[in-house]
Design a protein around this nucleic acid. Sequence first.
RNA 1: GGGGUUGUAGCUCAGUUGGUUAGAGUACCUGCCUGUCACGCAGGGUGCCGCGAGUUCGAGUCUCGUCAACCCCGCCA
Length: 591
Amino acid sequence: MFSNRIYCGEINANDKDREVTVFGWIDRKRDLGGIVFLEIRDITGIIQAVFDSSVSAENAELADSVRSEFVVSVTGKIRERTPETVNPNLPTGNIEIFASDIKILNKSLVPPFPIDIRDSINEEVRLKYRFLDLRREDMREAMLKRHRMMQITRQYLSDHRFIEIETPILNKSTPEGARDFLVPSRINKGEFYALPQSPQLFKQILMISGFDRYFQIVKCFRDEDLRNDRQPEFTQIDMELSFVTPKMIMEIIEGLIKKTVKEITGKDVNYDFPVMDYDEAMSKYGTDAPDTRVGIEIRDCTDIFINSTFNVFSSALSSNGVIRGFAVEDGGRLSRKMTDDYSEYVKKFGAKGFPMFKYNDGKFEGGISKFITDDEKAKLVEKFNLKEPAVVFFSVDKEAIVNSTLAHMRMKIARDLDMVDNNKLNFLWVTDFPLIEYHEEDKRYYAVHHPFTAPLPEHAEMLDNITPETARKMKAQAYDIVLNGVEIGGGSIRISDSAIQSKLFSVIGMSDEEARTKFSFLLDALQYGAPPHGGIALGLDRIMMLLLQRGSIREVMAFPKTQKGQCMMSEAPSPVTEDQLNELSIRVVRK
RNA sequence: GGGGUUGUAGCUCAGUUGGUUAGAGUACCUGCCUGUCACGCAGGGUGCCGCGAGUUCGAGUCUCGUCAACCCCGCCA
């Protein structure tokens, strides 16, 4: 019965006079009495079928009896529409099926929300009825393009000699980094697997095994709080290569990205991805993932105000703070209300305020301008290259707060003033991340990327003599790829010198025994002829989100979870039976 | 753990200063209609105003609490 099927969206004028049968859902019905139009939808698109009661009253009556989302088969002859009845809004709008038969294959309840229009519907309802939501145009497009991206990736990487190898989902827990999802072991009572945060250790093992280029499109799991670009399970395009430099990896990734962007969006990315080191990104943009679509840059003004008598500035400077700011050439569009709101808004970043002044016709006005000396004014004009009417904002606090505040406000103001070009795709490599970071509260160092990341060769000896200050200066062979201010991937060259590896472990406060219990198999393997190697992982969901210009990665995932990690459709997570718990020797403690 | 926004018909949303019978569009149901394509026309209200307390003669509206979704900080590479 289904063997002579043709897809709705694939019928065209060349099929004229052909008798076809389509199978699909009722997208819409227009009953004009003696004539009934049905729009039939399948995975490829929509086609109109016509039922004329003067040809078959029986068929027209049956067509009239269908409702939205009924599943039908329609048989008939393809014919061209007369010019005045062509629908230019429909890809198949120049033709239609002149139906000779219709069968109702299944009925449907009235759907809880419309399938046929691109209206924004409450996400809670969409997620509960995801099976219906996925029938809608936006989701269908997202799923088809996501499939396309995975196909391109597999083809491209295979062409570049990468081999796709699966790694375990049931894994060993390592308390470094994000929280693990744990899975109790029935056979080994009291013990747990962890779901992988990434296949990091296994892909390094594969290098040692001689598979010199590995890749995998793989689910990763992190039990952390959610955001619009963060889900507890997400998909990475993970890879690892032997005998490579960062430059080689970056070239391979650029090739893949450019091909993907072309296929998914039709756009050409005809520039080499700029490379910026971490220190420059932090000083100009206050973040390691700058959105370079916005030209506003941060400038350090600490030296200008070193002798300032303005209390806000002087007290911050006396407690080791910094003063940084940026200028917005706003053409007078920033209102008093907006700047007032901003000084409230910055509090979420830990800032106490958001001092500003306006620059107009060579004069400083409003805000803190009366606390600025003529000498300071001259220096500020030069520092920010002030010419046009502009507003200059400052942040004054500890460096981390200043960076965070300015990074966020730079983007917020740009969005408020409509200064962000949504058609741009600004890719950027950020390199030379710090290798380790000192945590004030814990009084210890942490690996910024992960503890197998190699330092820059010329910085390796700094490991012998680490202080919180020198730690900031020791850089890693680590690189992130950023698109429009979102980190879409990152990786590093790994340590293959066991002396450096054990030094690094000791610096981050991990004893040999501790390292051995956590990573024993990798440390063992590294002693059996480990090739120099490195890798990278791309966030598939985030890339799709950005390329399709969707507001969250949930829009490009078939079955995402809510912010509380729940699936509205299956209602996971859920309690389990006492028997199941007993079998696992687990008791739930209720608080 | 914290801050914010939202929650009224299946869906999208309005609802004034607290005022007596809670509305619009759409969907849905019934009928009419032979070239529609967001078809049109006529008729029909299908409601736990998220939930629970409180204030009040009276609460969709005010207060407190609570739940959920979303956004953000912390957290997370």
